[in-house]
Write a protein that binds this DNA or RNA. Structure first.
Lengths: 304, 304
DNA sequence: TTAATGTCTTTTATCGTGAAAAAACAGTTT
DNA sequence: AAACTGTTTTTTCACGATAAAAGACATTAA
């Protein structure tokens, strides 16, 4: 499956599914440009969506009038797996391979083999690898193959070293922001969400990772430095897969982290640089610890 | 020109030219694998080179015997411009456009147009843009075009902020290296080269940029952190084009910088963290100043 | 028996092509 | 006139194909 087709219409399918959810709420849909803005797609795609909705009897469509005729049924939706970007598909396959063991550091990566295995063209794999290379896990040999550097202890230490540098600086910048800055409102909302989650921790503990990312991104943004902000992508990627992979004591870990976050938020709100620094360090230290314990210790490799 | 061909043989041509220079020094060439290692290419390419050298009467080639028959003439060399990588060609064209004015921040970048203008396929341009994006000068709109963020004052400030963080840390790590580390030898050699250049500054002042890069990379490597080491690519790229572009007071600037480097090296050798910190800060401050003065001040842009 | 050369296979780099999606343009409706 | 819909053009995304380059295998010389 998947071979031969030039380009999948996942943008359309995903937008279609999201548009279906919109149908529940209204009796008629807005104008085409408005829908496009809402769904984050072009009018061309919006019109394809509307055309199909008309066809399947979900709406009556005549120029501006787009009346909802019936509620969407489960089988109106496109299957989830057809809404993924090629890049997402490739990343998932690649990470699965990488984490599913047998991925020794130094191993070489074969574009053609990867492409065949995943069932996509080589160009997409190449582009993925180039994009992925900024995470520091792979490296290109000129005119030749890619080399896997491995998800090792060294990697985790290097990653967290930078993270700590960047976040301490961002947190200090955050605390120094003027009281009328909109970030304080964002922070209050995040604090409230943390409290809610803290109460419901028994049932919703896996909702933490999203909250975690939102808080740290908010703080990093205060640095007003694109390199710092962009670096959070590396951290987010690693933690995303790390969360999926290491489920041991997830509830306890997250409960502790929520507590640290609340103390961190408290410190930020106090705008006392000493407190901010302390709370930030404390949380980052335990985040590093969590990451490190989930990495299997390997034979120490020779320094070149 | 350039259209229709699938892949240029620039690897071969570049290696051929480098091999010609080898011919001056010996009466006979080493084995094929050895030559490959020397030139950094595969045996396949080595054999193509040898085949042509035999054809043009430069060598007599029979199995292991590769006797040099005559010295290479200027017209034996392939033209310089045929030895460039596609990536280099694209980067140069792109940077020329970017620096040659008319490149306002916010302007959108068109892959197809770029490809047509340079005379290459879209795939290569796409791959270049993805690779280039890590420099923080461009940004991708999902499913759509790239946006130029511009070589602005803000960019320079963000870049130098990170640079200073990373280099201060690396310099401290460098100074803490044990006395038997090979880096001290490297540092001594660099110091000597600096002294030589200082004496010949009147005639060879443009040789500084290469020395600059070597010193800073040596220091950054002491961090043993791939993210820090990799970040120097961003700095190197910016300074590379900056040097080409801003020739004002080049000699004076480089003369000052050499002095700062020597003081910096001195401090490192003293292994006194206070001195290292001071020398490093001083040099980075003037490097930042140099970069900043070369950026035309634009209207302050609105914060989103 | 090691290390070279000779030959064959696989992989990478790059292009042209075509469908999906965006964007631009032109005509309508409020 | 402003904002919409209908239509056409352009651009992005992804593929298969092919030459360059790398790499693997087989053979031969020292």
């Amino acid at each position: 499956m998947g071979q031969g087709m030039s380009k999948s219409n996942n943008v359309y399918k995903d937008a279609y599914n999201r548009c279906l959810r919109l149908l529940d709420e209204t009796r008629s849909l807005p104008s085409e440009p408005e829908l496009g803005a809402l769904l984050g797609v072009s009018r061309t795609t919006v019109r394809s969506i509307l055309a199909r909705m008309e066809e399947t009897g979900l709406i009556a469509w005549n120029k501006r009038a787009k009346t909802v005729l019936r509620d969407p049924r489960p089988d109106d939706f496109f299957p989830e797996e057809e809404t993924d970007t090629l890049a997402e598909i490739i990343e998932r396959s690649f990470m699965r391979r990488l984490l599913a063991g047998g991925a020794e550091a130094g191993m070489q990566i074969n574009e053609l083999e990867l492409a065949r295995e995943i069932g996509v063209g080589t160009t997409s794999v190449r582009e993925f690898l180039i994009r992925f290379s900024r995470f520091g896990l792979i490296e290109k040999r000129r005119n030749s193959h890619w080399v896997l550097k491995g998800f090792t202890r060294a990697f985790a230490l290097e990653l967290t070293e930078i993270r700590e540098m960047f976040e301490l600086r961002s947190a200090a910048a955050f605390a120094a922001l003027p009281p009328d800055s909109p970030v304080w409102g964002d922070l209050d909302r995040l604090e409230e969400e943390h409290r809610v989650l803290q109460r419901e921790i028994a049932t919703r503990f896996n909702a933490f990772s999203e909250l975690d990312e939102r808080l740290h991104r908010l703080i990093h943004r205060a640095s007003h430095n694109r390199f710092i902000v962009d670096f959070y992508d590396v951290i987010a990627m690693i933690f995303h897969y790390h969360y999926q992979w290491n489920k041991a004591q997830e509830r306890e870990r997250n409960e502790v982290a929520i507590g640290e976050h609340l103390a961190y938020i408290e410190a930020l709100k106090s705008r006392d640089l000493g407190k901010v620094d302390a709370a930030c360090r404390k949380h980052l230290k335990s985040a590093r610890q969590t990451l490190l314990t989930s990495i299997p210790e390997s034979r120490p490799s020779q320094k070149s």
